[in-house]
Amino acid sequence: MSIRYVLGRLLFFFVVVWAGITLIFFLPRLAPGRDPVRERLGMMAAMGGMNAENVERLAQAYEAKFGLDLPLWQQYLNYMSDIARFNLGYSLAKFPTRVIDIIGPALPWTISLLTVATVLAFLLGSLLGGLIAWDGAPPILRFLLPPLFTFSAIPYYLLGLILIYLFAFKLKWFPLTGGSQILTMPSVSFSYLLELIYHSILPALSIVLASIGFWALSMRGMMITVEGEDYVTLAEAKGLPSGRVFLWYAMRNALLPQTTALALSLGTILSGSLLVEIMFGYPGIGSALFIAITGFDYFVIYGIVFMIVVTIALATLILDLIYPLLDPRIRYQEN
């Protein structure tokens, strides 16, 4: 892998994160004549209570960094330097909890659900799509196309709503809400793990079901193109077993554009799974965002949006760095 390629991808990572921070900073300030954070702080100070003194200090700190007397670029620099140190501020609704302490515990839930569901859907969907396009596969697979097609058109969380209604509300096979029983203390035990899995089956299923069709359909498209390539014809002419031709000549090449598509869809996938969390009351970033929006908790909203941008940029970077291992043409390009 050439150094130039790696540096290029790293640069892209930082530009994406920078663009995200910049948008988070400027977009709210475009709203004419009002700063929702200042309004909110004013409201909190007016309400008084136990934390009045702390709120006062928070408001002062905010004025010092983002006060109206400061030029915009100064505020922007202050913001950048805060973010660079992962200083995301305090929750306005649950003051004096720090934003990072709200995001931190939620992150593992989101990442584990998202990763497992996406990897599963991508692999199964690609395999299925490849088989549907392959002449040697059982023709019965073609009957899967209409349901796959239908599922892929439904947003994850709406499918989730249907699953909740059927399997949690009607049949009572799965819990209606939550990531674990309310009264269970987290522990490193097999029974706790089982409980986690039990609670995550429906949310995961709604992501997998809704996205498997997308991957299957796009893989089918790629395979139809790849099957027409001369190297697949030659592989067949060589007398290789059809399994070998399918996996290592056709699928292997069709997976390249498929991986690019995965990198491009990461944002949509993440957004969709955040909404799934909300439907299921699953204690991840999505639910935290929902609570923050309901409570006008701006620092938490901005903090979560920042984390979302960083997560996507990081996942994109990882995929970009894996890609040359799949495609030798990129690996040797600069050498």
């Binding site: 390539e229 001369d230 190297y231 014809t233 030659l234 592989a235 067949e236 002419a237 060589k238 007398g239 290592w248 000549y249 292997r252 090449n253 390249l256 799949l326 495609d327 030798p328 043409r329």
Partner: peptide, 21 residues
Amino acid sequence: ARFSQIALIPQGAMNSLNPVM
């Protein structure tokens, strides 16, 4: 029998080899 008895040298040399192998 393919290739062991009757072999093919294909038309499109540019694209007849698997690019990732």
